[in-house]
């Protein structure tokens, strides 16, 4: 056998399994690392969301104005909070025509000089004001008093 043939037989053969081994090792390490990072990240977020869900369930019902978001429209808010739509439009000083399909964020940019949250905060105030007005005042007690009033005979 010539030297050339000896070289051809000895050099390239062991390289391929080694390269394959490195590739598999890299893939395994990558998968395990990615799996650990993703599981930890989303597991933490999941636990946080679950905790906030428990917290949110303790809050009062449909009257909570903190649930108003910039993507909501006036007709939607009026429906959910059971406030007449006209009350909100009048309170905001915005005509409903052409604006009923616009979000609070869009109304901000068109009617509040782009101040973020200006319309949203005003809507919150209007709803709270309306809810206060709607709360029935306690009726005077009709139970007869046990002690006679000073002017009574």
């Amino acid at each position: 056998m010539t030297d050339y043939n000896k070289d051809m037989q000895s050099t390239p053969e062991p390289e391929l399994p080694n390269r394959n081994r490195v590739r598999i090792y890299a893939l395994v390490v990558l998968l395990i690392l990615a799996g650990l990072v993703l599981s930890a990240f989303f597991g933490y977020r999941l636990a946080q969301a679950a905790a906030s869900l428990r917290h949110a369930r303790l809050q009062p019902g449909e009257t909570d104005v903190e649930l108003i978001r910039p993507w909501m429209t006036i007709p939607y808010i009026a429906r959910i909070y059971r406030v007449p739509e006209e009350t909100l439009w009048e309170g905001l000083g915005i005509p409903p025509a052409g604006n009923r399909h616009k979000s609070l964020r869009t109304l901000d940019s068109e009617y509040a000089g782009g101040r973020p949250g200006a319309i949203l905060n005003k809507v919150k105030d209007l709803i709270l004001h309306y809810q206060e007005q709607q709360t029935p005042t306690p009726a005077p007690s009709t139970t007869p008093s046990s002690t006679p009033s000073p002017g009574a005979p």
Partner: peptide, 14 residues
């Protein structure tokens, strides 16, 4: 939950 599932799946395959 979907993100966590992908993480656990990658871990299991690894």
């Amino acid at each position: 939950f979907t993100g966590l599932s992908f993480g656990l799946l990658a871990l299991a395959v690894g």
